[in-house]
Simulated assay, not measured.
Amino acid sequence: MNENGSQGQAPVRVDTWIWSVRLAKTRSAASAACRGGHVKVNGVRVKPAHNVRPGDEVRVRLTEWERVVVVKDPIRKRVGAPVAEKCYEDNSPPPPKREPAAAVPLPVRDRGLGRPTKRDRRDIERLFGARDRRGH
């Protein structure tokens, strides 16, 4: 076994490999992505138990961004980010541009006024459209 967890060129489950190279935060998230049809190996949707080998192209969509990677080293154990980057060749398109969040003015209270009164709280809830405590 190598220092990065691989055992020669033996095949490894695709969900384990996706988790090992940090494309997914958890193994269960990688398995769920496979079951949901968000993982393709060489253009074919695969189940979590599908084996990957060096040279396979893996496409993973866990968010709105699809990652396209080519397997260099099929590892089984999760490794640090610098080592993980050496286990695949990243051919992903650039991530989509993020739109800045709309600036919502927050109500400002003067210092020293203490907790909001019931009237202040109702005004704040009306401003943000919050529901009352009973969920109505």
Rank of each mutant, 00 (worst) to 15 (best):
V68Y: 00
P82A: 11
E85K: 04
V14H: 09
D73V: 15
R53E: 10
L106S: 10
P96Y: 01
S6Y: 15
E64L: 05
N4R: 14
E99Q: 12
V83N: 08
D120K: 06
V69F: 06
W17T: 05
E64D: 15
R59S: 14
R109A: 15
R13H: 09
V108D: 06
R27Q: 03
R27C: 02
M1G: 15
A24K: 00
C87W: 03
S92R: 02
G129I: 07
E64A: 12
S6I: 11
N4G: 11
G8F: 11
K25E: 11
P116V: 08
V39N: 03
S20W: 05
R35Q: 11
T63P: 01
P105E: 15
E85D: 03
R27N: 06
S31E: 11
Q7R: 15
A10S: 13
Y88H: 07
C87L: 00
V79D: 00
V108I: 12
V68A: 04
R109S: 12
P100N: 10
S20D: 07
V60H: 05
L62E: 03
L23S: 06
I18T: 05
W17N: 02
D90Q: 04
L106T: 13
T117D: 07
H50A: 14
A32E: 14
L62M: 07
R98M: 14
V104L: 10
D123Y: 11
G129W: 03
E125C: 14
V14L: 03
G135C: 04
A102R: 08
K72H: 13
A29Q: 13
G114I: 07
N2H: 15
P95V: 02
R131M: 09
V70A: 06
G55M: 03
C87H: 02
K40L: 11
P100M: 07
V79W: 00
P48M: 12
V68D: 00
R122L: 09
R122T: 13
R61D: 00
P95H: 07
D90R: 01
T63V: 08
I75M: 02
H50T: 13
T117I: 08
R35C: 04
R53T: 12
R35G: 01
G43E: 01
A81H: 01
A10C: 10
R122P: 04
R45L: 05
S31H: 04
R13F: 08
P116K: 05
T63W: 00
C34H: 05
G55K: 05
W65G: 02
R22T: 04
